[in-house]
């Protein structure tokens, strides 16, 4: 049987975790293809190889469906960053992160970084309704109109209403506040046994995004790429004397020995 060809080995791995329907696939689409398109619930998992400067970064999109839950640990093995995704309009999606997904990250690297990402911010935050990619702007606005009635209502008033409601940060429809996310971030650090002081601060690691409008999406990925750079450098160094090569060599050495028959 011919050897199945090995693919270009990525230098580092990022994993998107989170409940089904929170928009993991959409986030990855938005970042890699710069558009928001129809998705089907992910089966198993998929990954994307991002060329970032001289480095290859693999970004794994996992399936949120319960059925595939068991595969999560494997996907997280060796990850340098895990993006824990929830839906800002759905409290349960945040709760699931803690209950179901956090334990999957046990297999990640010991210095793995964790980002908490509240997606679908366009549903709750008028700022996130402004399309970010100018070239896609018109198209997206059209999408906005077609797809969801609640967005239509919101996008009808492009500037945030200066009501006390929005000032207090609780806009109708919003179920998860950034404070909730930051609190969870603190608990994640505790779960990992990490000192809050020596870890990346919550403000830096909690994001709100919209795959639909592109709000904050590039920021999220690029911030993470910057943060995993040390891991990349370590990996590329290790690869120069990688364990696989060692195995080859030691096997070669064994071949030289007289057989034991």
């Amino acid at each position: 049987m011919p050897e199945v060809s090995k693919m270009k080995k990525p230098d580092v791995k990022l994993v998107l975790l989170g409940d089904m329907n929170v928009g993991k696939t959409s986030l990855l689409h938005r970042y890699t293809e710069r558009k928001f398109k129809d998705t089907v619930s992910t089966v198993g998992g998929a990954f994307f190889l991002k060329q970032w400067g001289p480095y290859n970064i693999s970004i794994w999109d996992t399936a949120g469906r319960e059925q595939f839950h068991g595969l999560g640990s494997m996907y997280c093995r060796g990850a340098a960053a895990v993006i824990l995704t929830y839906d800002v309009s759905n409290w349960q999606s945040l709760a699931e992160l803690e209950e179901r997904f956090l334990s999957l990250t046990d297999t990640a690297n010991h210095d793995c970084i964790y980002a908490l990402v509240g997606n679908k911010a366009d549903l709750t935050d008028p700022r996130a309704q402004l399309c970010q990619d100018s070239d896609e702007a018109s198209k997206d606005r059209m999408d906005c109109g077609e797809e969801r009635t609640e967005t239509q209502v919101l996008s009808a008033c492009p500037t945030p209403p200066a009501s006390p409601v929005s000032l207090s940060g609780i806009t109708p429809g919003k179920q998860v506040t950034p404070e909730d996310a930051m609190a969870l971030y603190g608990r994640i650090l505790r779960y990992k046994g990490l000192e809050e002081k020596s870890s990346l601060p919550a403000e830096k690691m909690c994001f709100e995004t919209s795959a639909k409008t592109g709000y904050n999406v590039d920021n999220l990925f690029e911030a993470l790429f910057d943060l995993v750079l040390p891991s990349i450098l370590r990996n590329t160094n290790e690869n120069q004397h990688s364990p696989t090569v060692d195995l080859e060599e030691c096997r070669g050495a064994k071949r030289g020995r007289p057989g034991c028959c």
């Binding site: 060809s5 198993g44 494997m74 996907y75």
Partner: peptide, 29 residues
């Protein structure tokens, strides 16, 4: 292939895993 296996996973997936326990290819459905 060398240190790589194909496994039947729940949900009718074909999962890839290498000897380190890492999946380097996305699964097939």
């Amino acid at each position: 292939g060398r240190e790589e296996f194909l496994l039947a996973a729940p949900g009718g997936l074909g999962m890839f895993a290498n000897a380190e326990g890492v999946s380097q290819r996305a699964p097939v459905n």
